[in-house]
Design a protein around this nucleic acid. Structure first.
Lengths: 239, 239
DNA sequence: CGACCGTTTGAGATCCTTCAATACCAGTGG
DNA sequence: CCACTGGTATTGAAGGATCTCAAACGGTCG
């Protein structure tokens, strides 16, 4: 399943060091693209920490429809499950470096290292927040808004000037992440290109040409109005 | 077992004693329907524990589109945020009993009580799993599937024989939770009624008449095929 | 070159939304 | 008792955003 790659270790982003919470407790392992770290439903024996690369987290419906519930970038934790089994499948998209830690060791770390405890809780709390962002995107955003939100999100994950973005994942992955089809993803990207908001030297390299316009489309600055969210409704509780 | 949509009924009132993790540390408070516990963006000063009732968690887009990212039932934890501010607004739907615990006290509990630590982590881990269920629903399920999944999920949260369900929330709430419009919610419910799968004595009381057929529609037993999720793709990492 | 795979483009169909009207229920006042 | 009101839910008709099906394009590799 995982084959160690004999080549020289990828350099780890220095900026990520602070979040590599297993750095002191487990060695890194190399994972090749398309390799499966674990399958949904497998017994959750280990916790994983992404040091380098991008990993996709998928779920399947019985009839084959796929949903990508997240892309894991360096700093992400994978495989947390208090119940016995993994909630999703994790597959590498790019060559990755990960750390693996047995569940029992994690429990021990939680009990003995308060710094570890707080970092784990912090990461999980951030992931919950990201999950809610994604629910808003899937539930209420239009196709162009989803695409632009996605591009800006990837850009924010990349080092660099924030103008050049590379998309390691396929159009199918993007579609399954955004709740769209590959055709729609492709069409919306070409529309953005034709509108002059992005450039696309290759399908996997995007340049953000007009950040202002893109921010606008993505409804950046989400929920700035923090007013009462509901219409005023009858105070009675429906019997 | 896999975490499918209607999964793991965490039982209500009497049984949730085990999950009422602040029971020993904070008194209960009453909250009236439509009351706001906290607003998205507010400084996250407290953690809340739902003892009784149902609470909705909402997010807003700048133009007013609303997304309900979850309904909190007894046993849920609200307001966890390691960053400074709440990620969503929490509003009571029914009369509720909650416990409130200051952030500093939570930190202290985390450091001193390993039972508290494990229960909190367990709850958060379940919430992450539920969030992924919801992403699959929003990203890949059709309107009828969403409605039925929702009904079965609510049923699993209710005590009783699992046949009678009551929906404390409005059609608008359901729509904002399922990424649909109220009209579509209403239409799909009447279709189910006309097909004889449910009865609807009042808009807020549903009876599940043919559980087998409903399970089928909701694609219960999600992802039983745990095979490799992706098509086989080129092993090369796109340059 | 020719096959393969991923991406893009096109045309038509469909599911869901939008807009609008009607129904329903509880409370209130004539 | 009944009309009236406000809020929610339901129903209808029409439109549109996205999907489906299908073909063309463009790289890579044998």
């Amino acid at each position: 399943m995982l084959h160690a790659i004999g080549r020289a270790p990828q350099q780890v982003d220095p900026a990520i060091g602070a979040r590599d919470i297993l750095a002191d407790f487990a060695p890194t392992e190399s994972v090749a693209p398309q390799d499966v770290l674990f399958l949904e439903g497998d017994e959750a024996v280990s916790l994983f920490d992404v040091v380098h690369g991008v990993i996709r987290l998928c779920r399947l419906l019985p009839d084959g429809r796929r949903s990508i519930t997240g892309f894991a970038f360096p700093g992400s934790i994978l495989g947390l499950s208090v119940r016995g089994s993994y909630a999703y499948t994790a597959e590498a998209i790019t060559p990755c470096e990960i750390r693996r830690c047995a569940r029992s060791a994690v429990t021990r770390l939680l009990d003995t290292r308060s710094d570890f405890r707080h970092r784990l809780l912090s990461i999980v709390s951030d992931e919950l927040c990201a999950a809610q962002d994604q629910m808003v995107l899937l539930g209420r955003k239009t196709a162009p808004e989803r695409i632009v939100s996605f591009l800006l999100w990837i850009a924010s994950k990349s080092q660099g000037d924030g103008k050049r973005v590379d998309l390691p994942m396929s159009r199918t992955d993007i579609a399954d992440y955004l709740g769209l089809t590959t055709e729609t993803v492709s069409r919306e990207l070409t529309k953005l290109k034709q509108a002059g908001l992005i450039a696309m030297p290759t399908p996997h390299h995007i340049e953000l040409l007009r950040r202002d316009a893109l921010d606008e489309i993505a409804e950046y600055g989400e929920a700035e109005s923090r007013a009462f969210t509901g219409k005023i409704r009858s105070a009675r509780w429906p019997s």
